[in-house]
Nucleic acid binder design. Structure first.
Length: 496
RNA sequence: GGCCCCAUCGUCUAGAGGCCUAGGACGCGGCCCUCUCAAGGCCGAAACGGGGAUUCGAAUUCCCCUGGGGCCA
C-alpha cells in the first residue's frame, strides 16, 4: 500500500516554524516510505484567508525543500485541493449521514444550549448535549421550521458503543469512552462544515493513509473515527506529534518574536540548517549524530522513534547549526554565501544602489577572511563593520585598554610609516613590516598588533590583522592610522 | 468542570530493569593554542518533579500527587 499523507495549512498568515516543523515531519515520513504527499489548503475561514498567504506558504515550503505530489498548484487526481472548492462534497456527504440517520438536524438555539450548560454547571456535572433533537418527529421538525429555526447537523454518537481505541504511531494505544462524547455538530446552521467533519471527508476523499498532525487533535480522533465508521470507511492510521514551544514553554506563537519561516530566511538561516534543526526537535538517531543531510534523514527517520513531549525552539542551537552549514556552503559554493551576505548588507542599507562586480568581489574577500566567524550573514557586521565604513567606531573599552599605554602614539606613527613604505602590500609584506616593527621596538608582535587592530577596526575582535589590512588596502589603512593617532594622543575618545 | 496527552542538565535529547558514579549536543565557565575574536583541543558546573508499590535491583514497570499542554464545554 502506498503511503499518502497531507499537510493542510490555513492561509491566514505566513508559514510558521511550528507549521513548517509539522509539514516537514509529514514529508519526512512520506518520503521515507516512498509515498505521496498532498498539500491541502484549509481556507474555510474566508475572512482571514488570502491568496497571498497561500502563495507565500507554498513558497516557503519549497524553500525548505518540502515538495508535494498533489496540491492546489499542481493538481492531482483527488482534487480540488482547496476546501472552499469542496463545499459540494461536504454537503453531499452530510446528506449521506442524514440518510443513514447517523446525523440529524438539531434546532436548539444557542440560548437553549447555554441554559443546558448552565444547569449542568449548577448541578456540578459535566456538560454534554442532552440529545433532545435526536428523535424529533416530522411534526416537530415542521414546527421548528415554521419558526424559521435554522438547524445545525449533529452526529449521532451510537449508544452503547464499545471503547474507541486509537492506535497512535507515536503515542501508542489511547482509549476513549464513547459515553464521554456527546452528539457533536458537523454542519453549522449556515451550512458550513465543521473542521472535524470536513477533515474526514477530505482525508478519505484524498485517500490519505496516515494522518500526522499536532497532538491538539488527539481528542478529535475518536469523533473522527466514529464518522469514518458511520460512512463505512476505514480510518487512516494516525500519529500525533507534540507541539513546538517557545522559551516560556507555551505553544510557539507570534508572541515569541520571529516565528515565520521567512523571518528566518531573511536573517540568512539556510534551509538545510532549519530542516536539520527541525529533525532534532523530537527525533534523534541512535548514535547521537546531529548533522544530517536530508537524504540521510529520509533514510533513517522512523516515526515510532518520535519523542512525545513538546520541544522548545532554541534559536541558539539553530544558530550553531547554521554556522556548521554556512561553512559547508562556503566550501561548496562560496557564491551562495556571498549572495546571502550581499543580500543582508543591502537590507541593512550598508550596500546601496547597484552592486557592481567589483563591490561584490570586495564583499567576497571580506567573507573569505571571516571564515568560521560567519554563522549568520549578520556576523559580517558583527566582526567586520569597519570594512564597510571609513568612519570607524572605537570601542571605548578597547581604547581604554590599548591606547592608554605609553608609546602607543609613537608606535602607531612608526607603523604608519612602515606600512606607507612597505615595498609590497601583500599578506607577507604586511606581516613582515609588523614583525620588523616589533623587533625595532623590542617587543613581541602582540604588543603592536593589539593597538593596531583597535586603530584600524575600532574593536578587539575580528579577522586576522594582516588579512584585514590587506583587504582594506594601503590607502584606507594609513588614513585610519592617522585618525587613530589623534585619538591615541588624547588617550581617550574625543568627548563628542 | 469532564476527558485525553506529556514529564531526564537552562535547551534539544540518549536511556526500553542491572552496561548509569545518568551519555551526547547547544549554551555557560576554565585551561591550552593563538595577533584578538571565532574555530579547534582538554577540563568543568549542570538533570532523572514528589510519594508509594513491584523487584535482589528502577530514570526505565504500576498507582497516586504535582506541574505543563490539549480537546470538549
Amino acid at each position: 500500500m502506498t503511503v499518502r499523507t497531507r499537510y493542510a495549512p490555513s492561509p491566514t498568515g505566513f508559514l510558521h516554524v511550528g507549521g513548517a516543523w509539522m509539514a516537514f515531519f509529514n514529508w519526512l515520513f512520506t518520503r521515507h516510505y516512498r509515498g505521496q504527499f498532498v498539500l491541502r489548503i484549509e481556507d474555510t475561514d474566508r475572512t482571514r484567508s488570502t491568496e497571498e498567504y497561500e502563495t507565500s506558504i507554498l513558497e516557503d515550503l519549497r524553500w525548505l525543500g518540502v515538495d508535494w505530489d498533489e496540491g492546489p498548484d499542481v493538481g492531482g487526481p483527488y482534487g480540488p485541493y482547496r476546501q472552499t472548492e469542496r463545499s459540494r462534497l461536504y454537503h453531499e456527504q452530510a446528506q449521506v449521514l442524514v440518510a443513514r440517520s447517523a446525523a440529524y438536524p438539531c434546532y436548539c438555539t444557542p440560548e437553549e444550549l447555554e441554559a443546558e450548560r448552565a444547569r449542568a454547571a449548577a448541578e456540578r456535572r459535566p456538560y454534554r448535549y442532552s440529545g433532545r433533537c435526536r428523535e424529533l418527529s416530522a411534526t416537530d421538525r415542521a414546527l421548528f421550521e415554521a419558526q424559521e429555526r435554522r438547524p445545525t447537523l449533529r452526529f449521532r454518537v451510537p449508544a452503547a458503543h464499545p471503547t474507541i481505541v486509537v492506535e497512535d504511531l507515536v503515542l501508542g494505544r489511547v482509549e476513549f469512552q464513547p459515553g464521554d462524547l456527546d452528539d457533536f455538530i458537523i454542519v453549522r446552521s449556515d451550512g458550513t462544515p465543521l473542521y472535524n467533519f470536513a477533515n474526514v471527508v477530505d482525508d478519505h476523499g484524498m485517500r490519505i493513509t496516515h494522518i500526522v498532525r499536532g497532538s491538539e487533535h488527539l481528542s478529535n480522533t475518536p469523533r473522527q473515527f466514529l464518522m469514518y465508521q458511520a460512512f463505512g470507511w476505514e480510518h487512516p492510521k494516525v500519529a500525533h506529534l507534540p507541539v513546538l514551544l517557545g522559551v516560556d514553554r507555551k505553544k510557539l506563537s507570534k508572541r515569541h518574536g520571529d516565528t515565520a519561516v521567512r523571518d528566518y530566511a531573511a536573517q540568512g538561516f539556510l534551509p538545510e540548517a532549519l530542516v536539520n534543526f527541525f529533525a532534532l526537535m523530537g527525533w534523534y538517531p541512535e548514535d547521537g549524530r546531529e548533522v544530517f543531510t536530508v537524504p540521510e534523514l529520509v533514510e533513517r527517520f522512523r516515526i515510532e522513534e518520535m519523542g512525545k513531549s513538546g520541544a522548545v525552539f532554541d534559536v541558539q542551537k539553530l544558530t550553531w547549526l547554521n554556522g556548521v552549514y554556512m561553512q559547508q556552503a562556503y566550501r561548496r559554493d562560496p557564491d551562495r554565501v556571498v549572495d546571502l551576505v550581499v543580500g543582508y548588507l543591502r537590507r541593512q542599507g550598508v550596500l546601496t544602489g547597484e552592486v557592481t562586480a567589483e563591490r561584490r568581489a570586495y564583499v567576497a574577500r571580506v567573507a573569505s577572511i571571516m571564515g568560521e566567524r560567519l554563522r549568520l550573514p549578520s556576523d559580517i557586521l558583527v566582526y567586520g563593520d569597519f570594512f564597510f565604513s571609513d568612519d570607524v567606531t572605537y570601542d571605548p573599552q578597547a581604547v581604554q585598554k590599548y591606547f592608554n599605554t605609553d608609546g602607543v602614539v609613537k608606535m602607531l606613527a612608526y607603523m604608519r610609516q612602515a606600512l606607507a613604505s612597505a615595498p609590497d602590500f601583500t599578506l607577507a609584506g604586511i606581516e613582515e613590516a609588523i614583525t620588523r616593527g616589533a623587533e625595532s621596538f623590542g617587543v613581541s608582535r602582540g604588543v603592536i598588533i593589539h593597538p593596531m587592530r583597535v586603530a584600524i577596526t575600532g574593536k578587539t575582535v575580528g579577522p586576522g590583522l594582516f588579512e584585514l589590512i590587506e583587504v582594506l588596502g594601503r590607502e584606507r589603512v594609513l588614513a585610519r592610522l592617522d585618525k587613530a593617532i589623534d585619538v591615541a594622543k588624547v588617550g581617550r575618545l574625543p568627548s563628542a
